[in-house]
Amino acid sequence: MTAFIIRRLFQALLVLFVTSVIVFAGVYAIGDPLEILLPADATMAERLQVTQALGLDKPLIVQYWHFLANALQGDLGTSFVYNQPSISVILQRLPATLELAFCALVLAIVIGIPLGLLSGLKAGSATDETIMTGSILGFSLPNFWQGMMLIMIFSVYLGWLPSTGRGQTGTILGIETSLATWNGIQHLILPAINLSLAKISLVIRLTRTGVQETMPLDFVKFARARGLAPSRVIFVHVLKNILIPIITVIGIEFGSLIAFAVVTETIFAWPGVGKLIIDSINILDRPIVVAYILVVVSMFIVINLVVDVLYSLLDPRIRSKR
């Protein structure tokens, strides 16, 4: 296991390096941030001064070399707009995105697995058809349309929940979170549901498929023949065996929830990194864009590593191969 982790860390460093080259070249070679940062009547002297201050007068390869040298020291550049270290700006917004992604993931697990179990155990019934139809809608309907419908129904027509912002926050175990206040929870409900709908559908279909593949197997038949209670057969024998692919997919999907929360955060004006990256792209704040992508890639790598470790713990056969 130790050798496996060390090997994955080396792979992670290589992935980060390649990603930094591609992203830096792509972002810094496109557009001119001076067109946005400076007024239209700025003089050539002012443009030259800002260009030199931002280091944009140097060749691209030199700019990347300086970026890489600073990145190895934890400095991913200074935001053109906020005039703060880009990593600091991202870390200020990241807790809000993590909170939203975590709540969406919990909803996907809490709702998706029971519905998937029910659908798999009652395959072909009206219950199964209803659940699968709902999962298809969750996959098919665009995320932004779902968000607008949630706002229209629960905020505009019914007036039950707020539609924008994060609301009041409090602290739980020293962590600032919306879950600490009722107002914060109210603001969190709609964006969390919107972000989780596609993942709920995915977990339902994955669980249903796992149940249908596992139920006919010999060890399930043997457990039934021993007279074990149906609930024990389902939750101990069946669910334990289908958890491996579910955990793998859920771990990867948590990374995608963080990376692709942009639409949800924009619709609900949620103050996370998704909204930050959209604003930064619009104003060509290059250090923020590069730092955001590298942070997201790093999170994907860490999440995938944790998933692999959990995978090995759940299935000793996999652990023995490493």
Score class of each variant (00 low, 15 high):
Gly112Glu: 07
Leu48Met: 08
Asp128Lys: 05
Asp279Lys: 05
Ile246Met: 09
Leu313Val: 12
Ala225Trp: 11
Trp270Asn: 05
Asp128Phe: 00
Arg319Ala: 14
Gly112Ala: 10
Leu48Phe: 04
Asp285Thr: 12
Leu118Glu: 03
Pro95His: 05
Arg166Met: 13
Met152Ile: 06
Tyr28Thr: 10
Gly159Pro: 09
Pro287Phe: 15
Glu265Tyr: 01
Arg47Ile: 07
Leu9Lys: 06
Gln186His: 14
Ile303Tyr: 01
Leu243Ala: 14
Gln73Gly: 04
Asn143Met: 10
Arg208His: 13
Ala198Gln: 11
Asp32Gln: 04
Leu60Asp: 02
Met132Glu: 07
Thr51Gln: 13
Asn282Ser: 09
Ile193Ser: 01
Met149Pro: 01
Ile301Cys: 12
Tyr157Asp: 01
Leu141Val: 15
Leu239Ser: 08
Thr19Glu: 03
Phe260Val: 07
Arg208Met: 11
Phe4Met: 15
Val27Gln: 08
Leu141Cys: 04
Ala29Phe: 06
Leu118Cys: 09
Ala291Asn: 04
Phe10Met: 09
Thr181Phe: 08
Ile281Leu: 15
Ser201Thr: 15
Val236Leu: 08
Val238Trp: 06
Ala123His: 03
Val309Asp: 12
Arg319Pro: 06
Leu54Pro: 02
Gln49Gly: 01
Ile244Lys: 02
Ala192Leu: 10
Ile189Ala: 06
Ile151Asp: 03
Asp32Arg: 08
Thr130Asn: 10
Tyr157Lys: 10
Leu313Asn: 02
Val289Glu: 00
Tyr311Asp: 13
Glu176Met: 14
Val296Ile: 15
Asp218His: 13
Trp270Gln: 02
Tyr157Gly: 02
Val273Leu: 09
Leu173Ile: 09
Pro230Gln: 11
Gln11Pro: 00
Asn304Asp: 05
Met132Cys: 13
Thr266Met: 15
Tyr311Asn: 14
Asp308Trp: 14
Gln49Lys: 11
Ala198Thr: 08
Ala192Trp: 01
Thr43Leu: 06
Leu98Phe: 12
Val236Tyr: 02
Leu314Gln: 02
Arg205His: 12
Ile185Asn: 10
Asp32Phe: 04
Ile30Lys: 14
Phe300Gln: 09
Ser280Gln: 09
Ala96Ile: 02
Thr181Ser: 08
